[in-house]
Computed example of a mutant assay.
Amino acid sequence: MGLRDDERAGTDPVPREPGRTARTHPWARELRTSVCCSAALLALLFLIDWGTGSLTWWRGVLWFTLAVLLFVVLCPPRVRAGRGWIASRSLLRSRLVRTDLLVSVRAVDGVCRRLVLRDSLGGRVELDPEVLVDHPDVWYRLDEDARHCVAAGRLRCGTDELRDISEQVDRETALAVFRVSGLES
């Protein structure tokens, strides 16, 4: 098995750590928040129906279904990145894209801004750009592989979006350093 062009000796500008996987750390806290919001909605709906005397079994099922739907919408995806890949796992599906084979990166605006990554094998992952800004180690893995794809000529669409996120990550990192050192005004 031969080496890819970007793995040949002497061409990798930053030595990679092959076993290290970057992941979103406060995922459990965000999951707990979504559970609490859903439970609070369910309790409030049951309390209102019980207080007015209109609570029936079918209305209880309706309120429970509504709370479950809210949980599904609020449940955060778990994002992990490693050498040559990034994965997003939600309650309903798991998606993986090979970042060492990226062909496009698009920013999709809508209710919330999303970053859509596609690889040459047909893999597709949608990410909230804030996940990358809040977790620089995940961003580092993606950026490192994206730079190799640009240098190899595979990634032709999306370099502007990646540059914008890079600037955001740099700005947030600098602000964090200023906050920790007490230099923030």
Rank of each mutant, 00 (worst) to 15 (best):
A40L: 15
S34A: 15
A67R: 10
L175I: 13
P76E: 06
L183P: 00
R163Y: 09
R163H: 10
G60A: 12
E30L: 13
V68E: 02
R16H: 03
W58A: 11
I48A: 10
L115Q: 00
T11K: 05
V97L: 03
D5Q: 08
T21H: 06
V79D: 04
S38Y: 07
V177H: 03
G10P: 11
A39L: 15
R89V: 15
E161M: 01
R106N: 12
V14D: 12
R141P: 00
S120H: 11
R106P: 05
V180L: 09
L127K: 02
G84I: 10
D128L: 12
L102K: 06
V79I: 15
R20W: 11
P76M: 09
G110V: 08
P15V: 11
T99E: 07
G110D: 01
R80F: 09
R171W: 04
L69E: 10
R4N: 02
G122L: 05
C37M: 11
I165W: 06
W85T: 04
C112T: 13
R98T: 05
T65M: 14
D12K: 02
W57P: 04
R93P: 00
R106A: 13
A43Q: 03
V61G: 08
V133H: 05
S166G: 15
V61F: 10
G182L: 02
E130I: 14
R95L: 06
F178Y: 08
V103T: 11
A87I: 14
L62I: 15
G153P: 03
W50D: 14
W85E: 00
D145Q: 08
D143M: 08
D12Y: 03
V133Y: 05
D128S: 12
R106F: 13
R32C: 14
E184P: 04
W139G: 02
D160V: 15
D160A: 14
T52M: 11
